[in-house]
Design a protein around this nucleic acid. Structure first.
Lengths: 100, 100
DNA sequence: ATCGAAGTTCGAAGATCCTCGTAGTACGGT
DNA sequence: ACCGTACTACGAGGATCTTCGAACTTCGAT
């Protein structure tokens, strides 16, 4: 139940972040977290299988976009807003402001 | 010498833009254009073959990130800053500000 | 009119990615 | 102790992506 591995701020790479955001499912996860942070991604009603969801959340976590904490049998995800804003000011807001 | 097909502003999709930016070569192209706009990508000294370069520039163009105009035997590329800033304010600046 | 330079098109090879099902682990509650 | 829930690990299939070389087109210059 140890904490999961996350990149430090100075290990985050822009290419990995962009790649993580460049998927429809992961983008919906990020949007949802921006709306209601600190939530289990399994309860978002995305239309994918549990194993697919694990893959996407891991991609976001390893890219440094989200932080994941175990709580009971669930995993609570939250946006790494401070880190992303510090590294790429405006990026996250620009993505979230996207009409499409 | 027909102009090449470009998406209108309202046809640009955030997922396509992010995917276009999520490649090291294309990111270097975008950075270079941010530094010196209206330039032929062939003269950037990226270490890829001409056909690979064509592929990347087309990806950027079709995503709506760059505008490409034929001039002589060359293709002049320029960042679609206004469109991107209007759609996703802060995104491009955030990406360009990226230390890594 | 011929030549070279700049780019494109068309495969093709190899890598990466997204998705899933199956099997398994970890935790909380009865 | 048992069960159900939430999630993970490990493939595998199929799609997409990146890269390239070879052959071709287009344009400007000689």
């Amino acid at each position: 139940m140890h904490t999961l591995p996350h990149p430090e701020r100075d290990e985050i790479r822009i290419a990995a972040v962009l790649h993580a955001l460049a998927d429809p499912v992961r983008l919906r996860i990020v949007r949802e977290l921006a709306r209601a942070d600190g939530v289990s991604c399994g309860s978002m009603g995305l239309g994918v299988s549990p194993s697919t969801l694990t893959h996407h959340v891991r991609t976001l976590r390893e890219a440094g976009v989200v932080r994941v904490q175990p709580r009971g049998t669930s995993r609570i995800s939250s946006l790494r807003r401070e880190d992303l804003d510090a590294l790429y000011p405006g990026l996250l807001d620009g993505v979230l402001a996207a009409p499409r």
